[in-house]
């Protein structure tokens, strides 16, 4: 028996449960009651409100990614410069919350923003239902996903390069911007991809923290499926998902391009 046949069960599984389900999105987007048509799809696409939500989601996802990068880079940098045993322990502390159910943590934030913080600040209004609150909890949820790849890249950085840079007369700041930062680009890129795409599709945080005032693109899709699916109408949700997939594809393509470019550059 040849070893390659061991992949056979998986290939059957892959076709049934990875390829076929993807086909359904395209089927339901362009097929209404058994006939192929662009009508339903066009109706969804010409709804300006959907595009406004997409724009808002991209903006919030950009904000989340930028803040995560600004907060996460120093964490990863400090950890990578610590003694290995200490850094290993502290980095675990940063990743523990990832294992704890994130719906539960988001729920806790709602309680904090709704009751605890206002009573500490002595204000009558709750802090939930604001764009700032949604942004903050999104940053909270995705920060470990930014720190992890950055820490992995930075801790593998060859320390003798830093010494070389110092020997050649660069000060700490210059060494950071000319040596450390360019070499950590792969980590930055994978951090950004790990935060940006999930941030566009997050629908729990806007639902729990935004009080429905800041529905993002994920909420549009969720509602299209949860509300309309009972009537067997998947077309709106499917069309919205195709747009989402295109966005994901574009952002991964940009990221890959950027990553390769820089890697090539660093060899030169």
């Amino acid at each position: 028996m040849k070893r390659k046949y061991f992949a056979f069960p998986y290939i059957v599984w892959m076709v049934l449960f990875i390829v076929v389900p993807m086909v359904f999105i395209f089927y339901y987007a362009f097929n209404v009651d058994g006939t192929w048509t662009f009508r339903k799809c066009w109706e969804t696409l010409s709804d300006g409100q959907k595009w406004r939500v997409l724009l808002l989601s991209v903006e919030i996802a950009f904000g989340t990614t930028a803040i995560c990068l600004l907060l996460g880079y120093p964490i990863a940098y400090i950890l990578s410069n610590m003694k290995k045993s200490v850094a290993g322990f502290i980095s675990v502390l940063f990743f523990v919350p990832m294992w704890m159910n994130f719906v539960l943590r988001t729920y806790a934030w709602r309680a904090i923003l709704e009751y605890a913080l206002p009573s500490i600040l002595g204000s009558k209004t709750t802090l939930t239902g604001t764009a700032g609150a949604v942004l903050m909890v999104l940053v909270y949820d995705f920060l470990p996903f930014m720190v992890m790849p950055l820490y992995n890249t930075l801790s593998k950085l060859d320390k003798s390069l830093l010494e070389a840079s110092r020997d050649l007369g660069a000060d700490g700041v210059k060494t950071f911007f000319r040596v450390v930062l360019p070499l950590s680009v792969p980590g930055i890129v994978s951090g950004i991809t790990m935060v940006f795409v999930p941030a566009i599709t997050a629908f729990t945080v806007p639902a729990l923290i935004g009080n429905g005032n800041y529905n993002l693109y994920g909420n549009e899709i969720e509602q299209a499926f949860k509300v309309l699916a009972g009537k067997g109408d998947y077309s709106i949700g499917s069309t919205l998902s195709i747009i989402l997939l295109i966005c994901v594809l574009i952002s991964t393509a940009i990221m890959n391009h950027f990553d390769n470019d820089k890697e090539g550059g660093s060899i030169l």
Binding site: A7, I11, M14, F17, I18, V19, V20, P21, M22, F24, I25, Y28, V197, P198, I200, T201, F203, G218, I221, E222, F225, A229, Y234, G237, S238, S241, L244, L245, V248, T252
Partner: peptide, 23 residues
């Protein structure tokens, strides 16, 4: 096979969820 296997890792959870729901 390797490229198709990467699909579920790149796909947002949301898309994975709805595709299974429809299936």
């Amino acid at each position: 096979v390797v490229n198709v296997s990467q699909l579920p890792m790149v796909n947002p959870d949301l898309v994975t969820g709805i595709t299974f729901m429809m299936l």
